[in-house]
Write a protein that binds this DNA or RNA. Structure first.
Lengths: 214, 214
DNA sequence: TAGATTGTTAATCGATTAACAATC
DNA sequence: TAGATTGTTAATCGATTAACAATC
């Protein structure tokens, strides 16, 4: 039914969480059905794009009717892999790491945060939510028992560069990278999602400063 | 010299901070000149794209030589507007807001964080770096004196939805939106940079779970 | 059934890449 | 000057949009 994930453009995949978000809202509001035209208007897309996107995964609509909100939400939830959990570890228990660990609802996103590490003795032992910050030296031990597939990097550039290979050797398949370093996609099997907050802020700064005169 | 900002694609603009980052590194490493081919290899772009991108803003290279690293870094710094500051306010002093306020180097990104607000009495009065968390009720007062043009939203969905118009009325031109709500671009003069961390994590979760079998 | 709306094919648009003349 | 590498025009590629036949 669903085509190989490689044939689906990354643009489509990046839109899936957005569809999911809007469908959750519609469902919460008690809306039972929606047409691609209505959804397009709400989301600022075209109806065409929505139908194209969804048809990458299957025909979820019904001609003459539209889409059942709950059914479509459930489909996308399944496609996004939110019904199963894979373990994740977080490295770097500073301000940002702490905020990510407590603010992000990993369980709702298909993951389980199972350990937090740091190399700073002042932070090791601290409690972050349910977890205790561990010494980075226990990384191997924890990975061999918990088998995490995702690593969240909230550490400085240099640390990220140095740690990447070690983490891959321990079985990490995906990086959620908040560091300033552009983690390269080492191999086809390693996935990297860069969150460059500073880049994002510089883009905003540029746009605000260059949008006034028009 | 530089064309109207509207004619430059958002893809080019989003790459500028990345160029800036790599050029800073090269400069720090003492590299004086670089060709588009060398830079392309480092950044994972094509040489063609780099030359196209840079030529949106001017001819910064020299035939037969390449680009002077320091000069090009300085040009991009200027284009990104990092040599001037505009005021920014942050709303929401929870975990995430606190981390953003302390972790992000606003001054290096062309902004000055001048105030932090919350509506939670338990947080008002807290110290975050140099700033004291203020009651959201003082928003009008602070904006009329500090004239911020950017608002950072680290608040829940509903709060973001409710606050947006009030902030625009107070002269906010750009939003750095960490909330779950898709702030719509109310008008041509308002710029929104959405940072949907949960969407990013769901995308990563999808990619990891769908990359193994290949 | 007739009307509505999907699924899907075709057309368009814009971004990326390639090619090459200009020039340092 | 010859070699190298840019700036820029042309070709390609892929994503988005439009159109429409299929069908509920």
């Amino acid at each position: 039914m669903s085509k190989s994930s490689d044939s689906i453009s990354k643009w489509v995949i990046r839109r899936l969480p957005r569809y999911y978000r809007f469908l959750m809202e519609l469902e919460k509001a008690g809306i039972a059905k929606i047409s691609s035209a209505e959804l397009a208007k709400k989301m600022g897309f075209t109806a065409s794009q929505i139908r194209q996107d969804l048809n990458c995964f299957g025909g979820f609509g019904q001609q003459g009717y539209g889409y059942n909100v709950t059914a479509l939400r459930a489909e996308i939830q399944e496609i996004l892999g939110l019904n199963t959990r894979q373990n994740a570890i977080l490295i770097g228990a500073g301000n940002l790491g702490k905020a990510v660990a407590t603010h992000i609802e990993f369980e709702k996103r298909g993951l389980s945060l199972c350990a937090v590490f740091d190399n700073n003795p002042a932070l090791i032992g601290n409690q972050i939510g349910q977890l205790t910050v561990r010494d980075i030296s226990s990384l191997e031990e924890v990975c061999s028992s918990e088998k995490p597939s995702v690593a969240v990097l909230c550490i400085p550039k240099e640390a990220a560069r140095n740690l990447a290979d070690r983490l891959i050797a321990l079985g990490i398949k995906g990086f959620w990278n908040f560091s300033h370093y552009d983690l390269l996609h080492h191999s086809d099997h390693i996935v990297v999602e860069n969150v460059h907050l500073s880049d994002s802020l510089m883009t905003l700064n540029y746009l605000v400063k260059n949008t006034q005169e028009k």
